[in-house]
């Protein structure tokens, strides 16, 4: 048990703080929602009712989609794009998909390589892109979920103000949808770019996200 906790502490820690933050969002989100309801003279929602409301689901999904988009872009962009001096970048002569030998696929697979790395054909192609495929699928599904619950939340608001509801097709071109979407994207893109660039000169001793403290500023693709 102790060994399991130690070997999985990173995944467990983030899983735990995710659940705590989601719980906190539900409590605070409900309070804010009910304040708004009060000013409109509408009914208050219990916590269970708020948890199945379109408002809560939209707030959760708009953040999910942007996080998974961020990682999808980072995974794919760093195949081709470089940043001199950054531990987040590959070495400057390694841009691109690299050779089968470098990537240990097909006949270059090692004894302990995953079977789909060795087998070749479609399965190796799929497996070679499986991380981006997974992050991309989660991004698209959470963005879809944001739009579906978003139009419902938007229409509930419209009806409470005696305004006409709109269709999903209208909603995905609406100011509300793109305002929610882009306000999340801009912060993710800034944070990722900042991480790639600040790590040229700044260090965190012991972190694999940083270069070793004593690494030269123009050392690229070195992780601590």
């Amino acid at each position: 048990m102790r060994r399991f906790l130690r070997e999985h502490s990173l995944g467990l820690f983030f899983g735990l703080i995710f659940l705590l933050a989601l719980f906190g969002q539900a409590i605070a989100g409900r309070a804010e929602f009910n304040n708004h309801q009060l000013t409109q003279g509408l009914a208050q929602l219990s916590l269970p009712s708020y948890l199945v409301s379109a408002d809560f689901v939209t707030d959760v999904m708009e953040n999910w989609q942007s996080e998974f988009l961020q990682f999808l872009l980072y995974i794919v962009a760093t195949v081709w794009l470089l940043q001199r001096g950054s531990p987040e970048s590959k070495e400057l002569d390694k841009a691109g998909l690299e050779s089968d030998e470098d990537q240990k696929v097909g006949k270059y697979a090692a004894d302990d390589s995953p079977p789909w790395a060795r087998v070749g054909g479609l399965r190796t192609t799929i497996y070679s892109n499986s991380l981006a495929l997974a992050m991309g699928t989660i991004f698209l599904l959470s963005w879809l979920a944001q739009s579906i619950s978003g139009v419902t939340a938007y229409n509930e608001d419209q009806l409470s103000q005696l305004q006409a509801p709109i269709s999903w097709a209208s909603y995905i071109t609406s100011a509300d949808f793109w305002s929610r979407t882009l306000q999340n994207w801009q912060s993710e893109f800034l944070a990722v770019g900042t991480m790639a660039v600040l790590s040229i000169y700044l260090r965190q001793r012991g972190s694999p996200e940083s270069k070793p403290v004593g690494s030269a500023h123009d050392a690229t693709g070195v992780e601590g």
């Binding site: 995944g11 899983g15 959760v60 989660i138 619950s149 139009v151 419902t152």
Partner: peptide, 30 residues
């Protein structure tokens, strides 16, 4: 190694499934 991988995938699938079901059900007049 595999339990954590599976747990994360299940969690995310449940979250996405929940969100889509709630969104669709509410949208259909729930």
């Amino acid at each position: 190694v595999r339990p954590m991988f599976t747990a994360y995938l299940i969690f995310i699938a449940l979250g996405l499934g929940y969100a889509i079901v709630i969104g669709v059900a509410r949208g259909l007049g729930g």
